[in-house]
Design a protein around this nucleic acid. Structure first.
Ligand SMILES: [Zn+2]
Ligand SMILES: [Zn+2]
Ligand SMILES: [Zn+2]
Ligand SMILES: [Zn+2]
Lengths: 141, 141
DNA sequence: CGACAAAGTGAGAATGAGTCTCATTTACTA
DNA sequence: TAGTAAATGAGACTCATTCTCACTTTGTCG
């Protein structure tokens, strides 16, 4: 387990405690599952991975984590959304999707972040952003 | 009806003909509906607008148009996807979504487009991109 | 013109992700 | 330890989207 995972897990647990929520095993396992990945997974993938944890609990946990800004929802082009942990430092990545086979790869780009940071919109308080690049991967050319 | 709509409509109809597809009234009405909007609508909104056109036909038409690059799918954060016409010139916009009320506004940003254009990814042929900014609109502050 | 094949269509069934309900259990707090 | 609010899991439910299928339209060829 990498340091970052430990950090995110305990960070998540403390934010949950600060929010007045109770400690719980099933939600803890959802947090662990998210901590162990470096890119997005669907709610049903997590549900399938966690035997003995109900679907409703998985969705609820993800929802709570999302409200606390600990997890973000990402559209991976398929039929289900993906969810991935949010690094408290603000460090993040975006995604490239192969529209043929569905493969998803994370990427980072500083110039892109700057361009987005410079966008201001009257009447809107901007909080986050999502960028998805679409194309074809090597295997599908 | 603006010039651009006429252009996109006939452009769409010819591309459909070129693709070996047959002329059809119901699909024509779906094309009209998309032509008449300058931002995204959901499939069910279009279906509701077009009395006498079956749901399956609306979805099929959108799918065909999407495959021909005439329409693009956009994730508006809600439960359904939006679809909007693609200008053959390549001119396009992205979206700002209010996560509280769901309001969607289009925006354009040249610096953002340049930053995206400069992104290259080994093993991927990039074809399109989607950018969504999230925040709160004035009414929801 | 017909006649044929391929594309198109609409009603409704089916699918599948996500949400809701509710009776029961668990965690904190006084 | 009792009270209270949060948490849980099974399963019912919703709703966007896809699929099926019998039937119609379109375009082509003779
Ligand atoms: Zn990711
Ligand atoms: Zn970013
Ligand atoms: Zn738009
Ligand atoms: Zn763009």
């Amino acid at each position: 387990m990498a340091d970052q995972e430990v950090d995110w897990t305990s960070h998540a647990e403390s934010r949950i405690h600060e929010a007045g929520l109770k400690k719980s095993g099933p939600r803890g396992r959802v947090i662990e599952s998210l901590a162990g990945r470096d890119c997005a997974a669907t709610a049903l993938e997590i549900d399938a991975e966690l035997e003995g944890v109900g679907r409703a609990t998985v969705y609820r946990a993800i929802e709570q984590l999302e409200e606390l800004g600990l997890v973000q929802k990402v559209d991976l082009g398929g039929s289900a959304f993906g969810y991935e942990k949010v690094d408290p430092s603000g460090h993040h990545h975006h995604h490239i999707v192969c529209d043929d086979c569905g493969k998803v790869e994370p990427f980072e780009d500083e110039a892109l972040e700057e361009a987005i940071h410079d966008i201001h919109r009257k009447g809107f308080k901007l909080e986050k952003h999502e960028v998805t690049l679409h194309g074809q991967c090597q295997d599908c050319r």
